[in-house]
């Protein structure tokens, strides 16, 4: 990683003004997306979703159904894109992989003792290896928030770098669990640490802690990605996860993405929504756009 030769001092990452961030976010939310740009946006959102199930009660049956949905979003409407990936626990990777053969939909696995990350280094490595051996295309790891808040930034950095080494070609998403980081300054710091340690994506949340993804948090991370890109010429992806369940909100994220990082990031190679119920809302909106009438959720499969 070329970037490592110019490692910054993570104790002095750029500061963030929270009120300024909120004002900027408010501007994004006033954009009015209508007509053809709305349709185009909705399809893009659909294609950026990491359809997710991360529950203790997950079974192969549940995962198989979700994987079918991932590829057949709503067959009544032709030419719909698939989602980007499904996101499951390591134990479900094998099932998901088999269900998605030939679909182009990727399998992402959470890892490193998700969601708390409270385990040993060895177990986290094993956890990741297990997911990869079962066919995971992408790894969603969690950082050690305790160590981070203690100021043990080297620990956090080394852990990410170690997992990235294990990942090889598989893309690594690094989850900060921003709901536990307390300040936007910390979100920025975590972003810088993760990117310089080799993250391919940075991701807000596990979905297990509230607040999960918010627009201000995501904006801070997008701006970190932008600065990192200018400093290293390497693109890093962004994944807000949890709490984004309506297409209106997702569209505002898309506006924010477009106006912060520009066109190069406007695909599922560089941007994902970690969500479970968002997909159906997007489908309902697309159906409304094509049929002209408001929809009922009874007509959309809940998997």
């Amino acid at each position: 990683m070329a970037a490592k030769s110019i490692l910054p001092d993570f104790r002095i990452t750029p500061t963030i003004d929270q009120v300024g961030i909120e004002e900027r976010v408010a501007r994004f939310t006033t954009r009015s997306i209508k007509k053809e740009s709305k349709m185009q946006g909705l399809k893009m959102i659909l294609n950026m979703i990491d359809l997710t199930t991360l529950e203790g009660k997950d079974t192969e049956g549940k995962v198989k159904q979700m994987c079918y949905k991932a590829v057949h979003m709503h067959d009544v409407i032709p030419d719909l894109p698939t989602v980007a990936a499904v996101c499951v626990y390591p134990s479900m990777v094998k099932t998901a992989k088999e269900s998605l053969i030939g679909s182009g939909v990727k399998v992402a696995s959470v890892s490193t003792a998700f969601p708390s990350g409270q385990s040993t280094h060895e177990i986290k490595i094993l956890d990741t290896k297990f997911a990869l051996e079962n066919g995971a295309d992408e790894i969603d790891m969690v950082i050690s928030r305790g160590e981070f808040l203690k100021g043990n930034y080297n620990f956090v950095f080394d852990e990410i770098a170690a997992i990235k080494d294990v990942c090889g070609k598989a893309r690594l998403k690094v989850i900060f669990e921003t709901g536990e980081l307390s300040t936007l300054d910390n979100v920025r710091k975590a972003s810088d640490i993760a990117m310089y340690a080799g993250a391919d994506f940075i991701k807000t949340s596990t979905g297990k802690i509230s607040p999960a993804a918010t627009m201000p948090v995501t904006l801070v991370m997008l701006e970190a990605i932008r600065d990192y890109y200018y400093a290293t010429n390497r693109m890093v992806g962004m994944k807000p996860a949890g709490g984004i369940s309506t297409s209106k909100l997702a569209m505002q994220y898309l506006v924010m993405l477009r106006e912060t990082l520009g066109g190069a990031w406007l695909s599922n190679e560089w941007f994902r929504f970690g969500a479970s119920s968002l997909a159906n809302d997007v489908l309902m909106q697309i159906a409304k756009q094509t049929t002209g009438v408001y929809q009922s959720s009874d007509y959309f499969s809940k998997d």
Binding site: R31, S32, M44, Y230, R258, G263, A264, L266
Partner: peptide, 13 residues
């Protein structure tokens, strides 16, 4: 030489 491109395919109607 990184450069961002804001002339995107997806624009606002």
């Amino acid at each position: 030489k990184a450069k961002l491109d804001f002339k995107t395919d997806w624009a606002y109607a």
